[in-house]
Amino acid sequence: MAVLREALIPLVLLISAGTYWWMTRALPSASTVFPYVIMGFMTVMGVAIIVKEFLTSGSDRKDDPLVTWRAPALLVLSAGFVAMFVQIGFVPAALIFLCTSYIVLGTKPLLAVIVAASLTGAYYLLFAVLIGMNL
């Protein structure tokens, strides 16, 4: 199982590299010589990582770092923020994202609303009003 977990990232990225090769195989060699050299090297290193993991005994393995629900939750909320940014604009999207994230991550609701509103206002004032960004 540990070997599989370790092999997952090299395998997925090597499949992506294979897709790159497949999609660019018709291009002239001058366009592809550099990326192919890099991907060849990447393949060798990917195989080396997997082989090394096979040869590593159980006691030598480092424990897997802890992943709690918080990181996936923040990732989903961030993706939601990007989607809302497109649909409803920066100010409401940032306000909803900050408020929700603070509360989900354990901040008291009243404090969450106050900090989210203040920060959204501060960001808007700084970037849209002072710097002139089109938020």
């Binding site: 920066f90 603070y102 991550l105 960001y123």
Partner: peptide, 17 residues
């Protein structure tokens, strides 16, 4: 829990800019 979402919004503005 306060710092992290605030930095995410600042980074988003940076990426958008």
């Amino acid at each position: 829990p306060i710092l992290v979402p605030s930095v995410v919004v600042a980074a988003s503005i940076g990426a958008f800019s």
